[in-house]
Design a protein around this nucleic acid. Structure first.
Lengths: 336, 336
DNA sequence: GACTCACGGTATAACGTTATACCATAAATC
DNA sequence: GATTTATGGTATAACGTTATACCGTGAGTC
């Protein structure tokens, strides 16, 4: 196989200068139709692909966007990714995903390597307990960055997230209407954005209704944890009948756990998830949840990123999208 | 904020040449301890991060690896990704993920953009119906590539996959021992690697036992499809009692479907999945499946890629890892 | 004291693009 | 016919690294 063709090879074959070839391929519109054709033919014949590194270095443009998530396995994130890339791809960007697995050290390594290639932008779900230094790192290197879901500090980056407090308030009202009086919040680990806001919302909603504060029960946001933790929670707090979960996966796990314990979600205990991932509707029983459309959320995120890239001087902003209570089978009137 | 510092700035501050600064930062070991310290101090003080584009362009090295998958949402893939990046990160590589969503057009766009930045390597689960041109594209640009799971042509790229035929044979024997005589293969769409090999394996295993050929029932590899298709399959082929699925997700969906229809997986019908994703063990009922450790598979994949990168001249090879029958609750003796 | 040699530093030319400024030529204007 | 003005092409200098080849200096050898 021959050497990788470069612009000079194309120019040579088309009998023009590299400057001309470059203009044709970039479509500046300054080149006559006849030479345009020659160059395009030559490029095609040689199977030319430009070296994006060189191009980006010279032009200062880079149409690659990174999406650094805390957990690639999370189906919610997977749907967000679809929304993000559908929008960005139509604008000619390439979206690639980095996974920190909520490990700050891994996240740090990933971001350091990412920064080196000076890509066009970064969408970022910060890992839990991300330290200031990592934020400084990103700030210092001036890559347009949008934080997502988990917010840190204020006004440092653009942010796209969920109206957590409002959502939780509507879930609480729903359960209270069904007769529930004692609540727990299940899932998530201490200290990070969404969970803090949600618990705060729950506390406030209960206080306003004159009800006792909720039990807070930490665990990771996956099915297995939900399955395991629900029995401990039940044993420790038998008075609790309304459970609001940090995510659908924990909620689904918790429902499986209840079934294993011989109970029925929506009868002895009511459970509400968060997100409305695809599985929520087809779980047995179908899960009552706070629905945010992850796909639409992804599109919103992409839009914010594009705006930032196109106008880096704009003041940073926070966009919150609402979550809507979707009642299915895991909530019901209190029994006994 | 000042301009982004470059190597020249570091060299200036350390009072050495850029050549020296470069050598220090790369650790060639040719520079005296005293100047080494000066340079490192200057670099730290300026918060210098090298421009990876320029470095890669000049040196021809690029420690970024792309992993192009057909479906990022698939939990199996998510676990593979963990294995891949755990191994590659220890070798100083950055792994980023591209999602084709099994759409050949999107895959094409992604790969074209990917190639432009001339990264260090590509791990690739080809989308279904990937055309020759896309393979040519990758061949032509000489990026070390390893295909994964889905094989195409022969010997063009290194390949890492699963011993599909053997696995299916053991699943078949298990079901036959339980008394099942009529089989179906559920899930996957026509014409691609793993499915072809598995169906072939099933055909052969049944033929050797003197049993009738299997029913082939196509559908996408997700829960919803499994849930929906199982009833049509049941109606169309009431004689079938042993179902082998293309993946755990379809299998779990099919089990949910059976339950909705008032049946019990492992009684009227036996169902076997493939992969052993995390959900398989905690599904209700727990799923009998052909277990491949996706994490270990990922490490194997990464290993093969590294070997290829380190020795591009080596002849291409195919590595197959076995899948092990893991009996849980969705298979049982034939009833009636 | 002339010769070799290792050591540690540097000047310089790449890598493959694109932005800029410039220069022909032909057409248009008076 | 001289002057302006589009039009379409090109030479050249960046972008920020690293590989190569080179060159002092001082120590070691005979």
């Amino acid at each position: 196989m021959e050497q990788k063709p470069k612009l000079a090879d194309v120019a040579l074959l088309a009998e023009v200068s590299t400057a001309t070839a470059s203009q044709v391929l970039r479509g500046t519109g300054r080149i006559s139709e006849s030479t345009r054709k020659k160059v395009l033919a030559a490029s095609k014949k040689l199977n030319y692909v430009r070296d994006g590194r060189a191009a980006s270095m010279r032009s200062g443009e880079n149409r690659e966007i990174g999406f650094a998530v805390h957990q690639i396995a999370n189906p919610f994130n997977a749907e967000v990714i679809s929304g993000v890339s559908d929008l960005l791809e139509t604008e000619g960007y390439l979206v690639s995903v980095l996974d920190s697995r909520d490990d700050t050290a891994r996240q740090r390594r990933n971001l350091e390597a990412f920064i080196q290639s000076l890509r066009g932008g970064l969408l970022w779900v910060p890992a839990e307990n991300t330290d200031d230094a990592t934020y400084e790192l990103l700030m210092a290197h001036g890559i347009p960055t949008v934080s997502f879901l988990r917010r840190f500090g204020k006004g440092r980056f653009d942010h796209v997230g969920i109206e957590n407090a409002d959502a939780i308030a509507s879930a609480t009202r729903h359960l209270v209407d069904l007769g529930h009086r004692r609540f727990a919040y299940l899932g998530g680990t201490a200290g990070f954005g969404v969970r803090v806001e949600r618990i705060e919302g729950l506390r406030k909603a209960l206080a306003e209704l004159g009800l006792p504060p909720p039990v807070i029960w930490d665990c990771s946001d996956d099915k297995v944890s939900g399955l395991n933790e629900i029995s401990s929670l039940r044993n420790a707090h038998p008075e609790v009948s309304g459970i609001i979960c940090n995510g659908d996966m924990v909620a689904i796990g918790a429902c499986s756990g209840l079934i294993r314990m011989g109970m029925t979600p929506g009868k002895e205990l009511s459970i509400i998830g968060f997100d409305d991932v695809e599985d929520a509707a087809i779980a047995t029983p179908p899960l009552t949840t706070l629905a945010v459309s992850p796909y639409q959320l992804g599109r919103k995120l992409a839009r914010v990123a594009l705006d930032r890239i196109n106008d880096p001087a704009m003041p940073t902003a926070v966009s919150l999208v609402p979550a809507e209570l979707t009642v299915r089978a895991t909530t019901g009137p209190i029994s006994g």
